[in-house]
Amino acid sequence: MFDVDEYLAVLGCDERPAADLESLRFLHKRHLMTIPYDSSWNAERGISIWRDVDIDVDAVFEAVVRGGRGGNCYELNGLFRALLDELGFRTAVLSAGIRQVDGTFGPDLEHVFNRVELAGRSWLVDVGFVGPSYVEPLLLSGDEQIQCGSRFRITEQDGYHVVERKGRTADWSPVYRFRPTPRQFHEWSGDQPALVEFAERLVGAGTVIRGRAFETGQMVLIGRRYLHVDDGAEAVRVLVDQDEHDRVVRTILRAES
């Protein structure tokens, strides 16, 4: 069963925090540092990756928080949303299309994340994205925001809001695009042609994606392509050696430190 106090303890919080921005920032970053993203669990779902977007909170809590496995976007953000609701935050479900390697964006319902309203301001809350991206809540604003050496901004393009990131040396690059209007779970019901086609490409590629944040950055492993971002500085390598690849996987999944 979903247990707020046990969840908080896993995130390193000994008591229930207030529903304020300081607590949201702490919990958000701790979640990304503590519970990894791991798409390997999508393989058994086949083209029905988005079948359970409205998660069974108790079952996912048992598998992820208590059982220690990683999760995908809607599992991790669904659990975090349930935690925030219990703590008194005002949340809503958002969706996004992630920027692809070829520069296009995935379907609008591809990625599931959250919005939190605090003191009349909207914050993007996303603990289910592999990165590189924001590790603390991002204010829904056109202002530049700095986190762990990277700059973030939200622009408006073609009717969408676009989260953009800039590292220490690279130029601005889109992370994903979204509409700020809250989503309803029934929007994912049935066979959505755009999602089915997208899932077929993902399943066909067979690429496993894993990631975890650390205090000053993020580790992202897409297949054998390893991206390490520390204080805004990026290093990319292809892990040809199997032993090295396995060590990185274990580090991300925390099978070993």
Rank of each mutant, 00 (worst) to 15 (best):
V130D: 01
Q242Y: 02
T34S: 11
A235E: 13
V101W: 05
G149A: 08
E244A: 15
V57D: 03
V249W: 04
A96T: 04
H111N: 11
L87P: 02
G68V: 15
V229T: 15
G68E: 12
I154K: 03
A63L: 14
F80R: 02
G68Q: 09
R177W: 02
G70E: 00
G46M: 05
V220K: 03
A255N: 10
N77C: 08
K29C: 01
H228R: 09
S150F: 02
R225M: 15
A19V: 11
K166H: 04
L21R: 08
H111P: 10
I98Y: 07
P107F: 13
R99H: 04
S189A: 14
D58P: 11
A235G: 07
E86K: 10
G190L: 03
A199R: 07
Y37S: 00
E6P: 07
P182W: 06
V53S: 02
D3S: 13
G217C: 01
V116T: 14
D56I: 11
F80M: 05
Q218Y: 10
L87E: 04
I146W: 11
T91I: 04
A235T: 15
R90I: 04
V175K: 00
Q242T: 12
C148A: 14
C73P: 06
G223T: 08
G211F: 00
G103Y: 08
F214E: 07
F185A: 03
E62P: 03
P174Q: 08
S39Y: 03
L84R: 05
R90T: 15
T216H: 15
D241P: 06
G159F: 08
V236E: 13
G70W: 02
A9N: 11
I252E: 00
D171T: 13
V162Q: 02
Q147F: 01
P137C: 05
A255I: 08
L94Y: 04
E164F: 07
G190E: 03
F105G: 13
S95R: 06
E197I: 14
L195D: 01
